[in-house]
Design a protein around this nucleic acid. Structure first.
Lengths: 199, 199
DNA sequence: TCACTCTATTGACGGTCGTTCAATAGCGCC
DNA sequence: GGCGCTATTGAACGACCGTCAATAGAGTGA
């Protein structure tokens, strides 16, 4: 038992350390397997310190999910110019690349959000609509996708399809290359918009 | 404190009672808010009895989710004849009707499965592929959807889109009628299949 | 009607984990 | 080199999961 003597960090450093560790541990565990005990031990601190910084397990989980979601947003920078469908393809490629590179972490993020409470889902929804708005609200509006209520529902549903397709493809490519996958995703958006009831 | 005297039921009756209660409570709670304590109190029994019947909290959760999934399958009987796309529409209508009628319960089911462990997800996947196979594997194969690996991935992704669309629509119809929604879902399947890379 | 048996059911106990809070000890400052 | 601020600790409490020997309800036979 090598009990490290207490090390005193600045609040910013400590917060960052705990959030990074939380995201890292989340990659190989579900959210409720991410206990305060486990994290405190991994970080070499007492349980009490986590409560000093985050107040509750719930709040800590929210902070970890937000941290992971921010990472996703940051690492998939939006294209700023070019043809609408090309921008969409660029955006989707960045997304697929990110999911491929952070497979376990991304799956944990999605599951944590889907199975979590209102707050966790809201955080994930924010990230998702942020990804969507990059591709549609600013770029494709009025070009590929008219901004109608029905189309908003359809675009949201389409992004659920895209997420499922990417995660399924990673587990088993079904004979498709990454280009096939992205090509399908890009083409499917106008395809489903075309069959949307008039809005 | 009115402590009811112990009532002795047959194992079948007791099991049924506990599962029904579990599904009913799940409608207004997440799965990990469904504690053994809570359920035992609601059922008017001791915690020990739940362990006698289900062995563990995990096993009880699985039984509840399976019970709810079976209910979904049972209440959405498959069409047996007619044109392929008509059968698809009938099947989707039954699905949408079910989700509308059991909104809270269905949402809890989906969230429990998505946020749960391997076993819970497997149960939900079974139910989902059972719904899918009704509409595609037996009916549409070779007619609307050729049975290729890529198409399997696409059909799976399409069903994720359908689920998201229905749940979003229930919260906010976005100006769409139920016929609009179902029409969109029916039309979107051939639409996305049409842009699937050759398999 | 009364044992008697079978087993459905209980309640108390041990362990894990989330949460609180008064006490402790690093680190910068004078 | 001492002092004060505050980052950090660890013990204590409650809620909940899981176990098991003891208990009591209900049918059965006389």
């Amino acid at each position: 038992m090598t009990t490290t003597p207490r090390t005193r960090l600045s609040p910013e450093q400590r917060r960052e350390q705990l959030l990074d560790l939380g995201v890292r541990l989340l990659a190989h565990r579900s959210l409720d397997e991410l206990s305060i005990d486990l994290l405190a031990e991994e970080a070499g601190i007492s349980r009490g310190l986590l409560y000093h910084y985050f107040g509750s397990k719930q709040a800590f989980h929210e902070a970890v999910v937000r941290h992971a979601a921010d990472d996703l947003i940051a690492q998939t920078t939006p294209p700023t110019d070019g043809e609408p469908l090309v921008r969409l393809m660029t955006s989707l490629t960045a997304y697929v690349d990110y999911v491929v590179a952070n497979h376990e972490g991304y799956v944990s993020l999605v599951r944590a959000a889907a199975g979590g409470n209102e707050s966790l889902r809201a955080i994930y929804e924010d990230a998702r609509s942020s990804l969507n708005s990059r591709a549609f609200r600013e770029d494709l509006r009025g070009e590929v996708v008219a901004d109608t209520p029905a189309n908003r529902l359809v675009v949201r549903a389409w992004s659920a399809m895209a997420e499922d397709a990417v995660l399924t493809w990673i587990d088993d490519p079904h004979g498709m290359t990454q280009e096939d996958l992205i090509g399908f995703l890009v083409a499917s958006l106008p395809a489903v918009i075309a069959v949307t009831p008039e809005g």
